[in-house]
């Protein structure tokens, strides 16, 4: 069974067809790239996969579950973690709390436990705390645990956001332009980080990225879309020399 299967996915906003007839199958373990010019519909696809939009047509089956009609938090609970193009941390909360809060998917207690401080509540809060510290440790963020993200440099904010996505123990990690806004040293660090994540955790990564350096050095397979439709796919070298891709990025004359 495939980890993620997207069949005939179409999304319309009013008259605009943002995604048309998109298909994808991830078996599990890949490091997939999704590229395409600005406005091609890449983030829309991510939003559809994470349940933020409900698709106009088509189906998304994650790990055997059709996600149609599921709210984003339930989709996430199935094991889909993601980051955002513009970092969306909870800026005014400690880094530790940022990590802890993304464990709502297996909170394991209800509001009454929280009023009564039942043994179950105490146990779960301890576990959440422990998991969060382990994640901070693993991601090398321990020293920033009590900082607020708004006071951290951009590169670290990215790292915190990835840590937050990882702390939901995702099977599939969606990275939306993780290298955007990073300087070249940070980009090298990011590439290392993603490689390490891939080797350390049993995850599948699917990322949108514009920086060719990142895409070419990380991705094992690349899908290219333009105007919401898939125009090419293949290994990094194949895609790089594909005339359709060059045309989409550089325009008609460049071919």
């Amino acid at each position: 069974m495939a980890l993620l299967e997207i069949k005939n996915l179409t999304q319309r906003f009013g008259g605009l067809q943002a995604v048309s007839d998109f298909n994808l199958r991830l078996e599990g373990g890949e490091l997939m790239g999704l590229i395409g010019p600005n406005g091609a519909g890449k983030t829309t696809i991510f939003n559809l996969v994470s349940g933020f939009y409900s698709p106009s047509e088509g189906d998304i089956v994650f790990d055997g579950t059709n996600t149609r009609g599921l709210k984003p938090h339930s989709v996430t609970a199935l094991g889909v973690g993601r980051t955002f193009q513009n970092i969306r941390l909870w800026y005014d909360m400690s880094v530790l709390d940022n990590i802890r809060l993304s464990q709502h998917y297996h909170l394991g207690y209800n509001v009454w436990d929280c009023f009564l401080r039942t043994p179950r509540y105490m146990r779960r809060e301890r576990d959440i705390d422990k998991t969060a510290w382990e994640m901070l440790e693993a991601m090398d963020l321990k020293e920033f645990a009590q900082e607020r993200p708004k006071n951290l440099p951009y590169g670290l904010q990215r790292r915190v956001e990835i840590a937050r996505a990882m702390s939901i123990k995702p099977k599939l990690l969606l990275l939306d332009e993780p290298a955007a806004g990073l300087n070249s040293a940070d980009v090298d660090g990011l590439i290392k980080l993603i490689r390490w994540l891939k080797s350390e955790f049993p995850i599948t990564i699917w990322m949108i990225e514009h920086q060719m350096k990142v895409v070419m050095s990380l991705c094992t397979y690349i899908k290219v879309i333009d105007f919401g439709a898939s125009i090419a796919e293949g290994l990094p070298e194949e895609v790089r020399s594909n005339p359709m891709v060059i045309q989409a990025y550089l325009g008609e004359e460049a071919v």
């Binding site: 933020f52 909870w90 809060l101 709502h104 509001v111 929280c114």
Partner: peptide, 29 residues
């Protein structure tokens, strides 16, 4: 007890970024 629990801090997450809260598995409703 409510606002200091991971459960109740979900409300603060909603305040700071509701989209992120929902996507990070917080049942905002």
């Amino acid at each position: 007890r409510f606002v200091s629990s991971t459960y109740g801090k979900g409300a603060v997450a909603i305040n700071q970024d509701e989209v992120a809260a929902e996507i990070m598995s917080i049942n905002t409703n």
